[in-house]
Structures are given as C-alpha cells and as structure tokens.
Amino acid sequence: MKHLIKADFKKIMYLPSYRYMILATILLSIVFGIIFLFTIEVTQGKLLTELSVLEVIDITLLGMDAAAIMLIIFAAIFVTKDLTSGAVHTNLAITPIRRKYYLTKLSFIAILSIIISTALIIVFFVFDQFIISINQMGALSFDSGFFAKILGSVLMVLFYSLLSAAGAFYFQSTPGGIAFALSVMFLPALIKMFPDDVSELLLSVFPEKSLHTFININATNSSWVGAITVLLIWIMLTCAISFWRFKKIDY
C-alpha cells in the first residue's frame, strides 16, 4: 500500500492540473482567511483591535472552509479520473484486491488533506501572530481550546474530502462525489429553517454540529466523545456503502 500511495503522490507531481489545484487550494484558503479577518468590522461590526486573540485565530481559520471545498473537488476528480479514464484497468491489474485499492485512494486523500490543512494552519498561525503583535492584542495561550480549534479545522477538511472520495467511488463520477460532500456540508443550513425541535433532532445526526464541537471552547469531554462517534459513524457508513458498490462493478 505504501508503494501505491507513493505512486499517487508521483501522479500529482507529474500532472500540472493537480499541482495547480493544490496551489489554488492553499492560496484561496489564505486569501479567504485574511479577507474574513479584515472585513470583520463589516460582517460583525467589531474593530479588529476589539477581538480577543482566540477570536482572531477563529476568524482566520474560516479560510479552512475554502480548503475543505477545494479538497472536496480535488478528491472527487482524483478518484474518478482513475476510474473513468480507463486507467482503472492498469490500476486494478496492479492491485486486483479492490479493498486495497479503495483504502489506498482514501489513505492518499487523507494524507494529502492532513498535509495541506496542517500547512495552512501553520501559515494562519504565523499570520495571526503577526497581526496580534502589531496590534498589541496580548499573548496567545496554547491551551486545550486552542488545540481543539486546530484539531477541529484539520478534521473538517479531512472529513469532507473523505466523504467526497467515497461519494465519487459510489457514483463513479466527479459531480456525484462533489454533490454528495457538499450536500452533507450545506444541508444543515436548510435544516435550520425547520421548527426548532425538528431541526435540533436532524442536526444532531449531521456532522456539522460535531465538527463545531471542537471549535466550541465550552465543549465537555462527553460532547467530544459524542462528536467523534458521529463523525466516525458517518465515515464508516459512507465508506462501507461506497466500497460495496465499487466492489461489485465490472470494468
């Protein structure tokens, strides 16, 4: 599996379209993070200097949403290009065990997501430190709340890109993978339009609430366990269904 993942990394090094997409993911996320921070007066009616240190980090980390959307697109394209361009013949000849092939692709997407989101967090952290120091906003405390936010941001990118990859395997198409992941991401916004008791119930099964648990500094240990359980169920169920479909397809 190590060699297969290495080959996938080689592929993104060789193909300019993948390289540009990763570059665009990084640049867009940074630009969005900076824009969110500098437009805070317009969006929240607060001056930048009025924000707490943790709020500054919180706002710039919104740029990670852009990374998540870009990686949803990337994951769907990456998975389906191999399946639909016919390259699957060669790939499955090398790895005829479908489970291994499936896990390799998901592992590659997971590793790539973690690398990109970690790199972005480092960039945001350096940028935030700069903003905090020039505005003399105080010192950043590396407490559990800070690390939870970082973990939540990495998990969000990882979670949605894996959903997209699994969706692409199920639908055998790029739009299918993207639509599936984006639906899971944005459906909660629609659900919130329902009466409170209904929306509360529905939202509890969607991953959005669980992902926000990590960002919420008041979250308890039990809510953390609940959030991780919901996310794991989503990933395991989605992957199991999409793998079952992939396993049955003749190429």
Binding site: K10, Y14, K81, S85, G86, A87, T90, I94
Partner: peptide, 22 residues
C-alpha cells in the same frame, strides 16, 4: 485498452508511476 491511461502524462511518467506502484 491502449487508450486506458491519463493522456496528460508522458510515456516515461506513465511507466514510472506504474513501476512505483508495483
């Protein structure tokens, strides 16, 4: 199927990816 490969790769890159994977 001879067309079953990524057409944006060169022959060397295509074979190199397969050699790495296998």
């Amino acid at each position: 199927d001879p067309s079953a490969l990524d057409k944006n790769l060169t022959a060397k890159q295509h074979l190199s990816i397969i050699a790495t994977a296998a």
